[in-house]
Design a protein around this nucleic acid. Structure first.
Lengths: 147, 147
DNA sequence: TTGCTTGCAAATGATTTGCACTGCT
DNA sequence: AGCAGTGCAAATCATTTGCAAGCAA
């Protein structure tokens, strides 16, 4: 196999830790997720990835998720959305359109993130809950749907 | 019918605005949601509500949601969770156990909520997105599962 | 060879819906 | 009478899984 980018090396390693191979089909999925600048649904993924069998796509996304390469987002819509895991990107949140369901990324300032983690940690602690991560979804209308 | 509490009056009104009646079955669902101090799944709801047919429960929860009486939460687990809409309770967020899936409520200080809304609003605006509400989920381990 | 992968077809399971009947108003 | 509500059974549909064949180490 030809030259491997640092990104591919990291993915290969994550997969290897779970006895999984970085096959052509998996590369195709990861590539689409990497190129798309937002979380995508499975139908979108299939459309963008050329010709992958649906069941293999589902199966590989599940494995990629276990290996920490992919993150699966569940909102109210018909399909889940998939994006690269934060270890491969950056901690961020989502803007979700109430009308068309499109999801786009949003990043908060490190200072605000710190404030939030501190708040969540202490509030959770009060009830014996051990907080480890947080997710923020902002709902509204995307530029397309807002008219 | 006998005396009606202020709460029931509000619910009746919300339903009435959608040409829906506040029937016995719907009262049973709302009562369980009100008594439970946390969002519950449909199976839990059926268990707590005595003997309601599953399909009617699903159907009525969907109608109650449309009428603004109930809110449906979707996370990764097998079942959605249901709680009373914020117009009947208070703006709050959720602590979600990674192990057992239990969801509990969490309230942030008004000052922090204000900071968040300001931040979300301006960040969203930069991409033409019109923000209208936000959801925050804190993941971790509940007191039961943390050992 | 051993064991991870794959594609197809079939299964799963939460949620939804068609329909005939009941009950408010 | 007229329409909303209910329960049952059957349908939906995104997602998962069994299995037999393919491929890499």
């Amino acid at each position: 196999m030809a030259a491997m980018t640092e990104f591919d090396r990291v993915v290969t390693d994550l997969l290897g830790q779970h006895d999984l191979r970085y096959t052509v089909g998996r590369r195709a999925l990861v590539k689409v997720l990497r190129v798309a600048d937002r979380p995508v649904t499975l139908p979108e993924l299939l459309g963008l990835a050329g010709d992958l069998p649906q069941s293999s796509a589902y199966r590989n996304l599940a494995l990629l998720e276990e290996a920490g390469v992919v993150r699966r987002l569940v909102h109210g819509g018909d399909h889940a959305h998939y994006e690269l895991a934060e270890s491969l990107t950056e901690h961020h949140h989502h803007l979700i359109c109430n009308h068309c369901g499109r999801v786009t990324d949003m990043t908060l300032s490190p200072a605000l993130e710190q404030t939030l983690d501190d708040s969540f940690g202490s509030i959770a602690e009060a009830s014996g809950f051990v907080a480890s991560s947080h997710v923020i979804d902002v709902y509204g209308l995307c530029s397309q749907c807002a008219n």
